[in-house]
């Protein structure tokens, strides 16, 4: 996919965005964006799933746990689902989950929900750029990434030895993969 290096903030913060997309519409649309050589931010890592109906709220939580600053969930427009109704079910679940995140203090602006069809390469580009810009503005989601650095007993920091230090650095997972091999 064509990519531009887009420092979205003067301090050079590149938000990490995980996108969960359906195989039939958005993934194909993103592919079209690539083959059309549309220029867009390179911060998004796509995970392809059969259908938005297969996308669980836990995917979003896990992405945040593992260092994502923002998440995109995208699939077929209403009435276009390859499995007839997967996106309708997803719409109900994410309608609720978005409100739940908001209530728990997770800024819902970090999560973009969109319908992108196989022919909407240009819309995918916009979704990506707008999400990256918005999340860049919000800054890194350290509040979530560092949650395990705050293990507590009785509401206060526990005497555990690693509690203060852990989660301070979140190196690029792709670099670590190299290390792993």
């Amino acid at each position: 996919m064509a990519a531009t290096d887009t420092p979205m903030k003067p301090d050079g913060f590149h938000p990490r965005i995980t996108a969960f997309v359906c195989n039939w519409c958005t993934y194909t649309g993103a592919d079209l964006a690539g083959t059309s050589r549309l220029q867009m931010a390179s911060n998004v890592r796509i995970i392809r799933l059969p259908c938005t109906g297969r996308i669980d709220h836990m995917f979003i939580v896990k992405a945040f746990e593992r260092g994502a600053d923002g998440v995109i969930v995208s699939g077929c427009h209403p009435a276009d689902c390859h499995y007839t109704a997967g996106n309708y079910h997803a719409r109900r679940r994410f309608g609720v989950f978005r409100e739940l995140m908001d209530f728990m203090g997770i800024d819902p602006q970090r999560v973009t929900f969109s319908w992108v069809s196989a022919s909407e390469g240009a819309k995918w580009k916009d979704v990506v750029n707008e999400t990256v810009a918005r999340v860049a503005e919000l800054g890194p989601f350290d509040a979530y990434h560092e949650l395990a650095g705050d293990t507590v007993t009785g509401g206060e920091p526990a005497p555990g030895p690693f509690e203060a230090a852990s989660g301070a650095e979140t190196p690029d997972p792709l670099e670590e993969l190299e290390v792993g091999r």
Binding site: T151, T153, G154, A158, P159, G160, P161, F162, E163, S166
Partner: peptide, 12 residues
């Protein structure tokens, strides 16, 4: 909990 924290790291 101040002697056996509800969750504690054994090693990394």
């Amino acid at each position: 909990g101040f002697f056996l924290p509800q969750s504690e790291v054994l090693f990394k």
